[in-house]
Amino acid sequence: MGIIRELKVRAGQIAGPVIGMTVVVYFAYHAVQGDRGLLALGKLRGEVNTLQAEVLDVRNERFELEKKVHMLRPETLDPDLLEERARDLLGFGKPDEWIVILHPDDPTLSALATFKQP
């Protein structure tokens, strides 16, 4: 009987620290590996940096487009830009220009050909 009582006493003395260490290990693991842990924080910071770079690219593109739109307004109309857009949209060219139309899906065309004016 003395041995069983001794085991119960020692188990009672060990149970508190073992449970405490288990709780500490559990929380330490989730602080590093969990959904909101240190590794997830590093991953989120990387995503934030990537998205911030993408935002800067989009802002630059938007700035360029706004500048072009501003140049097309009647009060600040740039004749060169107007001509460029009209020729691009309508497919017109000047009488002294040669227009070479290449189809990108045609494998026989590998480079632009040099034409001589008749």
Rank of each mutant, 00 (worst) to 15 (best):
M1I: 06
G2K: 13
G2F: 07
I3E: 13
I4H: 03
I4R: 02
R5M: 03
R5I: 04
R5H: 05
E6W: 04
L7C: 09
L7H: 12
L7I: 15
K8Q: 15
K8L: 12
R10H: 11
R10D: 12
A11Y: 08
A11P: 01
G12C: 03
I14K: 01
A15V: 09
A15D: 11
G16C: 00
P17R: 02
V18M: 04
G20E: 06
M21P: 00
T22V: 06
T22Y: 14
V23L: 12
V23I: 13
V23Y: 09
V23N: 10
V24I: 06
F27M: 09
F27E: 10
A28Q: 07
Y29T: 07
Y29R: 11
H30E: 09
H30K: 05
H30N: 13
D35T: 13
R36G: 02
R36Q: 11
G37C: 08
G37F: 09
G37Q: 07
L38Y: 06
L38K: 07
L39M: 11
A40I: 06
A40V: 03
A40Q: 14
L41C: 04
K43P: 00
G46N: 12
V48S: 08
V48M: 09
V48G: 04
V48P: 03
N49G: 08
T50S: 12
L51F: 02
L51S: 08
Q52Y: 01
Q52V: 03
A53L: 08
E54R: 10
V55W: 01
V55D: 00
V55I: 12
V55E: 01
L56V: 12
L56Q: 14
L56D: 15
D57K: 14
D57Y: 02
V58D: 03
E61H: 06
E61N: 10
F63Q: 08
E64I: 08
K68E: 08
K68R: 13
H70A: 14
R73N: 04
R73E: 11
P74Q: 05
P74W: 00
T76C: 00
T76Y: 00
T76D: 01
L77K: 05
D78W: 00
D78T: 02
P79C: 06
P79R: 09
L81P: 00
E83H: 01
E83A: 07
R85I: 00
R85S: 00
R85L: 02
R85V: 00
A86K: 05
R87D: 02
D88T: 04
L89K: 04
L89S: 04
L90Y: 01
G91E: 05
F92H: 07
F92W: 06
F92T: 15
G93T: 02
G93N: 07
G93K: 06
P95H: 07
E97I: 01
E97M: 07
W98S: 14
W98Y: 12
W98V: 04
I99L: 15
I99Q: 10
V100E: 14
V100G: 10
V100K: 08
I101A: 13
H103F: 12
P104Y: 13
P104T: 15
D105N: 14
D105Y: 03
D106S: 09
P107E: 15
T108V: 11
T108W: 02
T108P: 02
L109T: 11
A113D: 10
T114H: 08
F115L: 10
Q117E: 13
Q117H: 06
Q117F: 08
Q117A: 04
Q117R: 09
P118Y: 03
P118R: 04
P118D: 09
